[in-house]
Design a protein around this nucleic acid. Structure first.
Lengths: 142, 142
DNA sequence: CTGTATCCGCTCCGATACTG
DNA sequence: CAGTATCGGAGCGGATACAG
């Protein structure tokens, strides 16, 4: 059996446009979470509110451009809040909203899954590499 | 509170390399699932084994190139199996492995989350658009 | 039927410079 | 401190042609 919610939706094919829209949104959200920087950002933010520079430090490796962009997207979806304090020098704090925390927890399920099966994935990859080699190369040892 | 597993890991900062590796893998898997075509493919496959052409029909909109590529990546990770029957014309069947089904179910958690909160996200997006507009434009009505 | 190889446009993303 | 604007390289992904 499938047991898959999304799969079930897709399996019906003749679903209402509303469902199709949901599927689009699912992929959209998943793409965002699977984004190179978004996952790191929200998980770092999950520990508490942070300023722009602090975030830049914590996520590390991210450019200002990408951080700004990522934060914007997150804010746009109501996953994080942006609070600017009218001071000098400027002080802006980013924090996960309840919705953001909620998503963070939902993602946790996947994280645990990866945790539990990472060795399987790694092993399969190695096997695949070997099989691929023996296909393309000649039989050196009979 | 965070309540976040991954967030907790990251919050520690001084984690062992093993954990860091896990995080990499998490992002890797998440990126794959969030991929433009992967999610659709695995969910379609969740309903049962399919041939290449059938898959091409079901996923619809995907090119042979991308389907082949996606399937390869999935096979590589042990998420799907590729069974070639030595016939003519060629017949190749793709099916989700237990691991693949497992992942599919793990993703379901996220799918349900999106289902439950899609209206929130949509609403926030609209609000953001409006706020953005009133920022950039002049105050027309005082 | 089941792929692979090539061309090509487009977007992503990093580096850098500049602004308030 | 907190961003935005611009340039340029690299990879994604679509259309098409070709191969077993």
């Amino acid at each position: 059996m499938t047991g898959s919610y999304l799969g079930h939706e897709l399996a019906r094919r003749g679903v209402a446009p509303d469902c199709a829209q949901t599927i689009e949104l699912v992929r959209d959200v998943l793409a965002r979470v699977g984004d190179k920087w978004t996952l790191l950002t929200i998980t770092v933010l999950a520990s508490g509110p942070l300023r722009f520079t602090a975030l830049h430090e914590q996520v590390a490796g991210i450019s200002q451009r990408m951080l700004s962009q990522t934060l914007r997207a997150l804010t746009r979806d109501g996953l994080v809040t942006r609070t600017a304090y009218p001071q000098v020098p400027p002080r802006v704090e980013y924090a996960l909203t309840p919705l953001g925390h909620s998503l963070s927890e939902a993602v946790d399920g996947l994280v645990h899954w990866v945790r539990d099966h990472q060795s399987d994935i790694l092993r399969h990859r190695e096997n695949f590499e070997r099989a691929d080699d023996s296909n393309g190369a000649d039989a050196h040892g009979g």
